[in-house]
């Protein structure tokens, strides 16, 4: 779970915080919250595909 959080933080920071300023803006936080949900969804899609393929 630690590695999933590290990856999610890295990918979502790269996507949502393009110009770091003195605090996270509202639109950056909205982007981060959606990005978190989408990365978890992508992780689930990938896990299902991979496990069904190698089984």
């Amino acid at each position: 779970a630690q590695e999933l959080m590290n990856k999610t933080n890295e990918k979502c920071f790269a996507k949502c915080v393009t110009k770091p300023s003195t605090s996270l803006s509202g639109s950056e936080e909205t982007c981060l919250a959606r990005c978190l949900d989408r990365y978890m969804e992508a992780f689930n899609i990938v896990s299902r595909s991979y496990i069904s393929r190698i089984s």
Partner: peptide, 22 residues
């Protein structure tokens, strides 16, 4: 492997700003 594939497929497939659904 699953972490590597998620990271690679995310970079390839998710190119826009994250929305409420894909």
């Amino acid at each position: 492997s699953i972490h590597m594939l998620t990271s690679m497929c995310w970079d390839k497939c998710v190119t826009g700003t994250p929305s409420t659904r894909f």
